[in-house]
Write a protein that binds this DNA or RNA. Structure first.
Lengths: 239, 239
DNA sequence: GAGTGGTCTAGACCACACA
DNA sequence: GTGTGGTCTAGACCACTCT
């Protein structure tokens, strides 16, 4: 008699086994999974149970299913990131991905406020990236990205840091950003923020603190974005 | 041969029929629905198809299912509203619902910025509620709520306007708030905001503009909240 | 035409709630 | 014990994609 606490439905167990294959790189982004019947046969469950696991993973944006074609591992390309993780939109007009300019890349130790959410020691090494992001040449965001060096070896040897860093994390280190939590506050622009955003010191800015996690829900990236919201807003839909 | 465009899966049609019963009050909040087999028999579909419709409605927070007990229409009680629509949380400590004090209730006509999202004419009548909300006696939010008079007849005859207005909308007018969209910006506290929030004029505030919709996705309520985010933050989880 | 996911059905058994 | 939702299975047919 197994305890009720430890019980997991079969489809959840199947889901866990499939996620493990995403984590270990058996099925890299873009790859087609075997068909439902092949998976069912291999995992010794019915096709309906495999489907329930695949549907759950699809609703978490880990997979993409196309009728008639197959089931594919999600690729962290721009349009997906834009939709899933980037919530700043122009007040009017179409949504676009901002251009970015790196100000500084340094190797340092985390502050207490950085170490705690990233589950790191104060003596651990981290990369700190500072960059400005712009819509149509107008600077909108100043942001600081903090990454543990242990998971991003050789970051400083890259020629450039691309606009879409989540695609980089995936391609260079095989790290998939699967979920994140954001905390928003209103703050005043510091002299430094103001100079980068070309706005008066003391201008109200939207501060977004994001903690991003990988497929196994381990914290991977901490990001502090200060945003000028004169022409853009942060959009949320609640169901 | 029917056109592919007009096609809707059977479970989606079932879902639409069930939602109609929520809208017309056949099944009010808190009521138990018939069992899956009874619904299947009545609607002439299989129990599995009914289940798919019920699961979809459950994931939209319209229904609550309890193993062994039954399926129930969601009640807009505090804890649910807190979880579903209220995203301001103390930086540390437990989540609570703020107290509120109504400053003013007036009947007026909408501004252009109010009329458009509510799909109203500029000459329509609207209620405008202004109130302050506090955590532990500290004022945190000043907000303005705009409601079309046609859908909320007699609002001015109420003795008091309760803290949880969505519960009021449901009980008094049978209107269920099922979804909403929020836009966030950082602004400076006006003299008026500052006096209510007991903060300096010019203090950075988080402005939340919310458009709330009913079960049929019709806009119902427009709300502008100005929030002091020194000790609280707006939390978002992204999957 | 062959292969894929999408829908629909039917039935079995389990876990839980309540009287 | 009875009735509910939760899980699991098996099979059928449809719509779509690619060759």
């Amino acid at each position: 008699m197994e305890p009720a606490v430890g019980f997991k439905p079969l489809y959840a167990q199947v889901k866990d086994r499939l996620i493990r294959r995403l984590v270990d790189g058996t099925w890299p982004p873009g790859m087609a999974l075997p068909s439902e019947f092949e998976l069912a046969q291999e995992l010794k469950v019915s096709q309906g149970t495999v489907r329930k696991a695949l549907d759950a993973m699809t609703s978490e944006n880990l997979l993409v299913r196309r009728q008639g074609r197959g089931t594919f591992v999600t690729v962290p390309e721009e349009s997906r990131i834009l939709f899933q993780f980037f919530h700043l939109k122009p007040d009017s007009g179409t949504v676009t991905f901002p251009q970015s300019t790196v100000l500084k890349l340094s190797k340092t130790t985390p502050t207490a406020a950085e170490a705690e959410p990233l589950a790191l020691s104060r003596r651990a090494k981290v990369w700190r990236i500072e960059r400005v992001r712009s819509f149509a040449d107008a600077p909108i965001i100043v942001e600081t990205i903090t990454l543990p060096v242990t998971r991003f070896e050789g970051l400083d040897t890259l020629e450039t840091i691309p606009n879409n860093v989540y695609e980089l994390y995936s391609k260079r280190w095989g790290i998939t950003i699967a979920q994140s939590e954001e905390r928003l506050k209103a703050i005043s622009a510091s002299a430094r923020d103001a100079s980068h955003l070309k706005c008066p010191e003391g201008e109200p800015l939207l501060l977004i603190s994001r903690l991003a996690r990988d497929l196994e829900a381990q914290p991977v990236e901490l990001r502090w974005s200060r945003c000028l919201t004169r022409t853009v807003h942060y959009g949320v839909k609640l169901r």
